[in-house]
């Protein structure tokens, strides 16, 4: 029996068999990627180079070259404005989410009474953060601390700042609570990483006379450098894909407009995507260089 089988499948080595099964497990994803991501992505790019008109019978396309792109960048006054605001606000939010969620995770990693209760409260945003809910809460003023944002002292202070700093600072003041609301999963990620750090390193440091403060800067922070990147990427993506994001809403509103429609919305999607990629790259490089400095 077995010699016959071997002769039928002569050259199937152990390694090839392993690879074959590996492909069998992931093939469904590869097909799905081609069908549901790559093909639509390519199609969207094609749309962005055309004037697309949707009719009851189907769609007709007229080639437009890069006209949709030039329109978005040079003619449409709203889009570029929104894009810049989005970039500035995202870049301003990332450090806040990073520091805040790390701090909370450090707290929750300590042992104290009522820890469970506080955990339950701090992960609430994971459950609640959805577009319509946030929109409703913002509209009803439940996400700002009005007394702080409108206090004359702060208004004066913001006005003294250089112009390029004014809008991010104002954004941070008015949406501070909102930014914190986007920190739920990030706290979880930090907490998971903190628990992976070997306790014995801390014990060794304590025996050598290191204080808790020194241990944080010399042990905890360097151990979290990879996690920082993960959290930063996650934060940027969540903020950028959020359905109440201004750019996303603008693109959506333009999709069903006769003037431009799908072609124009597709071009804007690609421009948005490239800005998003740029932001990711910047944050990645910054965190990576910092990580190298810490480990050096």
């Amino acid at each position: 029996m077995s010699p016959r089988r071997a002769s039928r499948l002569p050259r199937v080595t152990h390694r090839a068999r392993e690879a074959l099964y590996g492909y069998l497990f992931v093939i469904i994803w590869v097909v799905g990627f081609a069908l549901f991501t790559l093909a639509p992505l390519a199609q969207t790019f094609v749309y962005s180079m055309h004037h697309v008109i949707v009719e009851a019978t189907g769609i007709t396309m007229q080639p437009a070259g890069w006209k949709n792109y030039t329109r978005a960048l040079f003619t449409d006054p709203t889009f570029v404005q929104l894009l810049i605001e989005y970039a500035v606000e995202t870049l301003a939010s990332v450090p806040i989410v990073l520091i805040f969620s790390m701090l909370i995770a450090l707290f929750l990693n300590l042992k104290f009474r009522l820890r469970g209760v506080f955990r339950t409260i701090f992960f609430l945003p994971v459950v609640i953060t959805s577009g319509p809910v946030i929109k409703e809460l913002v509209a009803q003023g439940a996400t700002t601390v009005p007394q702080i944002a409108q206090s004359t002292m702060l208004v004066e202070f913001v006005e003294q700042l250089p112009t390029y700093l004014q809008s991010p600072v104002r954004y941070l003041l008015t949406s501070f609570i909102l930014i914190l609301w986007f920190s739920g999963v990030q706290i979880l990620i930090y907490l998971a990483s903190l628990q992976k750090i070997d306790r014995s390193i801390y014990e060794a440091a304590a025996i050598d006379g290191a204080s808790a403060w020194e241990a944080f800067w010399k042990i905890t922070l360097p151990s979290l450098s990879t996690t920082n990147v993960v959290v930063a990427v996650y934060t940027i993506i969540t903020l950028s894909h959020f359905s109440e994001n201004k750019v996303v809403r603008y693109i959506y509103s333009q999709t069903y407009v006769i003037q431009g429609g799908i072609g124009y919305a597709s071009a804007m999607s690609f421009l948005y995507f490239s800005v998003l990629a740029l932001i990711l790259l910047i944050v990645y490089l910054v965190l990576q260089s910092r990580a190298r400095k810490v480990s050096a």
Binding site: P40, Y47, H241, A265, F273, A277
Partner: peptide, 17 residues
């Protein structure tokens, strides 16, 4: 590619679908 599917905004793939 898996990371890419996480990054690509839904706007870029939703309309053809």
């Amino acid at each position: 590619l898996i990371l890419a599917t996480f990054i690509i905004p839904p706007q870029n793939t939703v309309i053809p679908q």
